[in-house]
């Protein structure tokens, strides 16, 4: 096993994961707000924020789908060593998926939960490159005082996802060590 595989995990897992989770929770609770995730140094193309998300939330119970360029040996072996999460090519059984927006498409491949159990749905981690909260789509709904703004790759697709509510996918957008979230409850309007 190569050195990059063994390194880059949390140094003090219980405390680092607790800090990272609070940031994840704050992001999911306040759509469009940017949080910073510390402690993970995964191999490229996995961003530090996405790496910290997986270290915090994934284990043997959560099938992970690697989309596009993320499906490489470096990322596969890093996730396998640090999380033990099973990797899957079958998007319909993924609990988490990560990749660029283009690589993750089409969204219809992922489970959106059932009307009775809408929580049985996938969480998508989009490697966004940058997070722009000054311009872009208008976000309203639970967690947002008034409205928020976030530049999105395809506001229409997220609006369609919201239309499935309470079913739907939940999104984290990662860039470097920063992350923001757009859960299904968020109403997304293109402007």
């Amino acid at each position: 096993m190569s050195q990059p595989t063994l390194e880059g995990g949390f140094v003090d897992a219980p405390r680092d994961a607790a800090q990272a989770f609070r940031a994840c929770m704050s992001a999911m609770a306040r759509p469009g707000r940017v949080e910073t995730l510390y402690g993970a140094a995964p191999p490229a193309p996995l961003s530090p924020a996405a790496g910290a998300l997986f270290l915090t939330l994934c284990d043997a119970d959560t099938p992970v789908h690697l989309a596009g360029a993320h499906d490489c040996d470096a990322v596969r072996s890093w996730l396998a060593f640090h999380t033990g999460a099973p990797l899957t090519d079958d998007r319909a059984e993924a609990a988490f998926a990560v990749g660029t927006w283009a690589a993750l498409l089409p969204l219809a491949d992922y489970p959106v939960g059932s009307a009775r159990y809408p929580d049985r749905s996938a969480t998508l981690v989009v490697e966004a490159g940058t997070l722009d909260t000054a311009t872009g789509a208008r976000l309203t709904g639970p967690g947002i005082d008034g409205h928020a703004r976030l530049a999105l790759p395809d506001a229409g697709a997220l609006s369609a996802n919201h239309a499935l509510y309470p079913r739907g996918l939940d999104f984290f957008f990662a860039a470097g060590d920063r992350v923001t979230a757009v859960p299904r409850a968020t109403n997304v309007e293109d402007t």
Binding site: A17, M25, M28, T56, L57, D61, D119, D170, P183, R184
Partner: peptide, 17 residues
């Protein structure tokens, strides 16, 4: 830690719905 991850995933879904 595994229990906390399970609870944390539930909390995130609860916040999303």
């Amino acid at each position: 830690e595994q229990t906390k991850r399970m609870i944390r995933r539930a909390i995130l879904k609860a916040l999303a719905i």
